[in-house]
């Protein structure tokens, strides 16, 4: 019963958690903003002084900054492309009736349960290693020169590793959506003379847009923050070839021990993420309304 009294009581009841959540968000944010305006280097034993916008200036004009934005975008877009296209194809395949469906589904989901550090290390040492890796063995077996993935195509290799982790998630969501596709609609289209391909493009794809939007939105949030995979495989290199924004923030604050510049980078990352989120929400809003 939502009487005046119970509503007021409800507000009092939820107030502590709202306050706690607010502090939880606002305290780190404010501290980071505060640090980002300080000349605060852990290696220099002097009291931190006010630095104005210097930290921002240095971070933004750092040549690595632009590169790191491009690398971040490449990872986000590359992984999204692979997981959405691959996810649709896998979901279509898994939606067909075949023997051992249950086991195959569990197997496909499996990569999602492997920790990012672990899977990245497995890829690095057991697959991509140019001496001992599986791919190197295959290449040698075929009489080819082994390919050193992480030094010759570092960004693509990382995209591959991250896509492998996220493919199950995309497949699962898209499969659920496929299973809710109306059978009579498909039959009606079949009678209307639509080929398998036209049925896919005119019926299945529009039906999947909602699920695809959800996949894109959720994955974008996580992909912007990819860190462990880069840390354990390439450490941002060779050179700065795989340095993303989150990795650059890490380098600034914990490799160069420049907390001020690191914080400024963190704030810039937050702003960029919000811009992406804004566009993503607009897109999703449009798709979820229809």
């Amino acid at each position: 019963m939502a009487t005046q009294h119970s509503r007021i009581a409800a507000r009092f009841m939820v107030a502590p958690s709202v306050v706690l959540l607010f502090l939880w968000m606002i305290v780190p944010l404010v501290t980071t903003i505060y640090f980002s305006f300080l000349d605060y280097k852990l290696l220099v034993p002097k009291p931190s002084t006010w630095a104005g916008f210097d930290n921002y200036y240095y971070f933004l004009t750092d040549r690595t900054f632009l590169a790191s934005i491009l690398h971040t975008l490449a990872i986000v877009l590359g992984v999204l492309f692979i997981t959405v296209v691959g996810g649709i194809l896998l979901a279509l395949l898994m939606n067909m009736p075949f023997w051992g469906q249950g086991i195959v589904r569990v197997l496909v989901i499996a990569p999602f349960f492997v920790m990012p550090t672990v899977s990245a290390l497995v890829w690095k040492n057991m697959f991509m290693n140019p001496v001992n890796g599986m791919f190197a063995h295959i290449a040698k077996g075929l009489g080819l020169q082994p390919f050193d993935f992480l030094s010759q195509a570092p960004l693509l290799s990382i995209i591959g590793i991250v896509a492998w982790q996220w493919l199950p998630f995309a497949t699962l969501i898209l499969l659920t959506s496929l299973q809710s596709l109306d059978g009579e609609q498909q039959e009606a289209a079949e009678m209307d003379g639509a080929s398998v391909l036209s049925r896919f493009f005119y019926l299945t794809v529009p039906h999947l847009t909602r699920a695809v939007t959800v996949v894109i939105l959720i994955q974008t949030i996580f992909l912007l923050a990819v860190f462990a995979e880069i840390f354990v495989t390439t450490s941002g290199g060779p050179g700065t070839a795989t340095t993303t924004i989150s990795y650059l923030v890490y380098i600034q604050s914990l490799v160069k021990y420049d907390v001020g510049a690191g914080s400024a980078g963190g704030i810039i990352a937050v702003i960029l993420a919000n811009i992406v989120a804004f566009f993503a929400m607009r897109m999703i809003g449009k798709n979820l309304d229809a």
Partner: peptide, 21 residues
Amino acid sequence: LPPAKRGLAMVFQSYALYPHM
């Protein structure tokens, strides 16, 4: 013959309209 080639049209109980068109 496949359904499309039979020259028949069917109306389903659930209407089976294409919802996004």
